[in-house]
Computed example of a mutant assay.
Amino acid sequence: MITTTDLTKVYRSQGREVTALAGVDLHVREGEVYGVVGTSGAGKSTLIRCVNMLERPSSGTVTVDGLDLTALGGHEQRAGSALREARRRIGMVFQHFNLLASRTAQENVELPLEIIGLDRAQRRRKAAELLDLVGLADKARSYPSQLSGGQKQRVGIARALAGDPKVLLSDEATSALDPETTRSILKLLRDLNQQLGLTVLLITHEMDVIKSVCDSAALMRGGRVVESGELTDLLATPGSELARELFPLSEFGSGHPGRTVLEITFQGDTSARPFVSQLARTYQIDINILGAAVETIAGRMVGRMRVELSGSHQDNVVPIGFLREQGLQVDVLDAANGAVA
């Protein structure tokens, strides 16, 4: 649904060049919620603004629903009109809501409908339906100053849906909200994704947002995508940086020299199996559990456990093989620093 190929954005000012995007390749499948995460300055906001052509890339292509947006626009009137039409199919939710203070919630939602030329009755009917969809039917006549932060963002989401988009872009939509409100907005985005078949691309600096709502994710650093994929695949990938950020075990012990430390990841059906007790009984070995955690990620139960076995890695080749035969991901760690050996 969304594909960027070798996307580059260079800003030039006073003889200086700043590269915000450096050859970004991204693929978001139809109907999924895709998160892009990274620290400030990673290039996330520039990326999402290039996707809807609020920023024109310096080079590379952006394709949305099979249409190359970078081939549209410019000075030619017909091309510019085609770009405006394409943008109508892309909804955008902003961090700071961007509501007009002089308009009620309903009137804010009606604004894009006015621009495309719907008559007053059609605008009112459509805006009322959208406000009901986001749970704000009773706030239609309220002004932004009378709404909470979460309610303002719901109005912003309703406005973004006014053009019946296939794609919804979220630019740090929850970063200005408290944790409880954040959870409600993320649940709304997931519900809209499922009810309307929306493809959602969101950017965030919060790993909890990725964990709670996304199907796939990309990690950006220095204007580049350094890792990407489905969350379930990333969690099963040895050495995945995103997986370790999603499911950190840094607070757990790193074991003792001369012993074998394993990091075991389990998800889906394997999460219900008593593999630790089976391992201990089968091989008559002592197992020291250094730490464990279980969470729901991308709608699946996922767990990670760090355990310590007596003896060296070579001494434990057979028990490690037993665990892997159970469908578990097993990484052998260096006990000195907790890194994958």
Rank of each mutant, 00 (worst) to 15 (best):
T4H: 09
T5W: 10
D6T: 11
L7M: 05
V10E: 07
S13L: 12
L21C: 08
A22Y: 08
G23V: 10
V24W: 05
V24Q: 06
V24K: 06
D25Q: 09
E30H: 13
E30W: 06
E30L: 07
E32C: 11
Y34K: 01
S40E: 05
S40K: 03
L47N: 04
R49G: 05
R49V: 06
M53F: 13
M53K: 12
P57S: 00
T63I: 14
V64N: 03
G66C: 02
L67A: 10
L69S: 01
T70N: 02
E76T: 08
E76C: 08
Q77Y: 07
R78V: 08
G80D: 06
S81I: 15
L83S: 04
L83E: 02
L83C: 06
E85D: 14
G91S: 04
M92D: 07
H96F: 14
F97L: 01
N98G: 03
T104R: 00
A105L: 00
Q106G: 11
N108V: 04
D119T: 10
Q122L: 10
L133A: 13
L133N: 09
K139N: 10
A140R: 04
R141V: 12
S142V: 06
S145R: 05
S148Y: 05
Q153W: 04
Q153K: 05
A158V: 12
A160T: 08
L161F: 14
L161S: 10
V167T: 09
S170Q: 08
E172M: 07
L177A: 02
P179C: 08
T181M: 03
T181V: 01
R183E: 13
I185A: 09
L189F: 05
L189N: 03
D191W: 10
I203R: 03
R224Q: 07
S228R: 12
L231C: 01
T232N: 07
T232E: 06
G253C: 09
H256K: 13
H256C: 11
P257M: 10
T265G: 06
F266Y: 04
Q267S: 15
Q267G: 15
A272D: 12
V276W: 12
R281D: 13
I285K: 01
D286E: 14
D286S: 13
A292T: 15
R304A: 03
M305C: 06
L309N: 04
G311E: 12
H313W: 06
V318L: 15
R324H: 04
Q329S: 01
D331G: 07
G338E: 04
A339R: 14
A341G: 07
